[in-house]
């Protein structure tokens, strides 16, 4: 008796709203046409070179050098963003100062500004005769057309990721925690280091990973400032384009799949981090 009561209404309930099949059908068809089939074409083209071919591509000195510069510059940029992005998020949430709302909106500039536009602006700024480039040159530092330039472009495009992941967590943080720490005699720095920071770690790691993942794939803003010398300042996405321009489709596909594998691992890491964060919260 209870069983019958329990099961029948539930079956009907899901069908009150119409359009499930239609909308899911549109979603799956569009997803397949735009994302899945093209990705399958990519993977199958890369599979055409075989496992040995993939290894040969991955261990080619020029490819290795481009992976090194891409990941190295992305790591440095994400680390810089981690520090300054969380400082910025802290100021936006905790401090009240004139222009705060303007700054808050301004943080999204790298999201909204087309990458090529950012690329030429940063290059002009940091080139030998540019406003900042001439200062750096006087100190003997080469920025544009050298590895530091790549990192600068990647800092620019990665900044919003850290700020926008840390900011909501800071807003949700219960002030009682910090007050308790202060009442128990902790200094402000101790409170931030021992009470606030541990709460922020999942958000900080997620923001760092997002900024890093975006930096690894970035193309538009980097190619202007990088100088693009093979083996020195050539990033992986540019190497893919170069292979494509030489009609080496298989080589380009193999490189792309290697990059995708890395992105996939990072995506997985982000998801695990988020599960970890929710579980910590639930505890």
């Amino acid at each position: 008796m209870t069983l019958a009561l329990d099961t029948t209404p539930r079956v009907r309930r899901t069908r009150v709203l119409p359009g499930f099949r239609l909308t899911l059908g549109i979603t799956l068809a569009w997803l397949s046409a735009i994302v899945l089939i093209p990705m399958i074409a990519l993977v199958s083209r890369a599979a055409g070179v075989g496992f040995d071919g993939l290894i040969a591509t991955a261990t080619d000195p020029r490819v290795l050098a481009s992976f090194r510069i891409t990941f190295g510059a992305s790591l440095i940029a994400a680390a810089i963003n981690l520090v300054f992005g969380s400082l910025l998020a802290w100021a936006l949430v905790r401090w009240r100062f004139p222009g705060r709302r303007l700054l808050d909106g301004f943080v999204d500039l790298p999201f909204a500004l087309p990458t090529a536009v950012a690329g030429i602006a940063l290059t002009t700024l940091w080139a030998k005769h540019g406003l900042l480039g001439s200062i750096a040159e006087a100190q003997g530092w080469r920025v544009a057309f050298a590895p530091p330039g790549i990192a600068i472009a990647l800092v620019f495009i990665g900044l919003p990721f850290v700020v926008r992941t840390v900011q909501p967590v800071l807003e949700e943080l219960e002030p009682e925690l910090e007050e308790a720490a202060a009442l128990l005699g902790a200094s402000r720095l101790q409170t931030i280091g021992r009470v606030v920071l541990p709460e922020l770690i999942p958000a900080l790691l997620t923001g760092f990973t997002l900024a890093f993942a975006r930096a690894v794939g970035e193309y538009g803003s980097v190619i202007f400032i990088a100088g693009n010398r093979p083996g020195q300042t050539e990033i992986v996405p540019l190497l893919i384009v170069t292979k494509l321009e030489q009609y080496d489709y298989a080589g380009a596909a193999a490189l792309a799949v290697l990059m995708l594998a890395v992105s996939f691992v990072m995506l997985l890491a982000i998801n695990l981090l988020q599960t970890w964060a929710t579980r910590r919260h639930a505890r």
């Binding site: 990519l42 193309y219 996405p237 893919i240 384009v241 380009a252 792309a256």
Partner: peptide, 8 residues
């Protein structure tokens, strides 16, 4: 990477 989005 946007480059891959074009490549496919």
């Amino acid at each position: 990477s946007p480059v891959i989005s074009g490549l496919v």
